[in-house]
C-alpha cells in the first residue's frame, strides 16, 4: 500500500471509529424455499428451460455419444474440452473421427487466447451442482477446467449430476462449508448470456455464450 493510501486509510478509519456506535441488530430467521426430492429436479429443469437453456437427460455412460449427436446436428466444428478431468478423458476416449474436432484447454490463456476468443464453437465443462430454486448451475473452475471455458465460446455445454442438484444456494453454502475455503472463482450461471439494454428486449449472447446446453446425468 502506498503512503497516500495509508494516510487515507488512517483518516477514514479514524472518522468511522469516532462516529457514534449502534448495536448490530440480530439476524431474523429466514428460510429459503425447499422442495420435495422428486420435484427438485423437475423444477431445476423447468427453470433452466425457461431461462433459454436446453436440458437433456443423459446417463454417465451415454453422454459423450448424446453430446456428439447434439453438436453434430448443430453443425459444430470445434469443441473445447478439459483433457485432464475425468469427464474430459471419457469424452476423448469415446470420441469418433466424424465428430467435431476436440480442442484441449491445456495451457495458459496467454497461449490460447485467439482460440478461446474466436477459434472454437463450444466448450464442455462439469459443474459442482445445480440449484432448483432459481434454475442455476454452480461452477468452481479448476486448474484443469479453467474459468473462460464457460464464458468465451458461443455454446456452453454443462454436465450436471442429477444428485448434485440442491434446493437453494443458502443450503449449499452452509452445508458444503464454502466460507472455509472459497476457490479463486466461483460462478453461478442461470442461462446463456443476455441483455435487455435495448428497449427491454431480450437478446442472447451479448458477451458470453449464446446457448447453454445442460446435460443432466441421471443414475441408471
Amino acid at each position: 500500500m502506498s503512503d497516500l493510501s495509508n494516510a487515507a486509510r488512517s483518516r477514514i478509519m479514524a472518522r468511522l471509529k469516532a462516529a457514534p456506535t449502534s448495536v448490530p441488530p440480530e439476524l431474523p430467521a429466514w428460510s429459503p424455499p425447499a422442495y420435495l426430492p422428486d420435484e427438485r429436479l423437475a423444477r431445476f429443469t423447468a427453470l433452466m428451460e425457461a431461462l433459454h437453456s436446453e436440458v437433456y437427460e443423459v446417463t454417465a455412460a451415454d453422454w459423450p455419444e448424446r453430446l456428439r449427436t447434439i453438436l453434430s446436428n448443430r453443425g459444430i466444428n470445434r469443441v473445447m474440452y478439459a483433457p485432464a478431468t475425468q469427464a474430459g478423458r471419457q469424452l476423448a476416449d469415446t470420441w469418433t473421427n466424424d465428430a467435431p474436432t476436440l480442442v484441449a484447454y491445456d495451457r495458459p490463456v496467454e497461449e490460447l487466447k485467439d482460440t478461446l476468443v474466436s477459434g472454437v464453437d463450444a466448450a464442455v465443462t462439469t459443474t459442482l451442482g445445480g440449484i432448483a430454486e432459481t434454475g442455476t448451475l454452480v461452477l468452481w473452475p479448476t486448474p484443469d477446467e479453467p474459468r473462460l471455458m464457460s464464458l468465451l465460446p458461443p455454446i456452453h455445454v454443462a454436465l450436471v449430476e442429477a444428485d448434485s442438484v440442491v434446493d437453494n444456494l443458502a443450503g449449499l453454502i452452509a452445508q458444503a462449508g464454502w466460507a472455509k475455503a472459497m476457490p479463486t472463482n466461483a460462478v453461478l450461471i442461470s442461462g446463456p448470456s443476455k441483455t435487455a439494454d435495448i428497449e427491454q428486449t431480450l437478446a442472447y449472447g451479448v458477451h458470453g455464450p449464446k446457448e447453454l446446453i445442460v446435460l443432466v446425468i441421471k443414475r441408471v
Binding site: 427453470l47 432459481t134 434454475g135 472463482n185 453461478l188 442461470s190 442461462g191 446463456p192 448470456s193 458470453g208
Partner: peptide
C-alpha cells in the same frame, strides 16, 4: 429471480 451470472472472486490466478 437471479442474474445470469453471479461471479465470486476470491483471489488472483494461483
Amino acid at each position: 429471480p437471479i442474474t445470469t451470472y453471479v461471479n465470486m472472486i476470491t483471489s488472483p490466478r494461483k
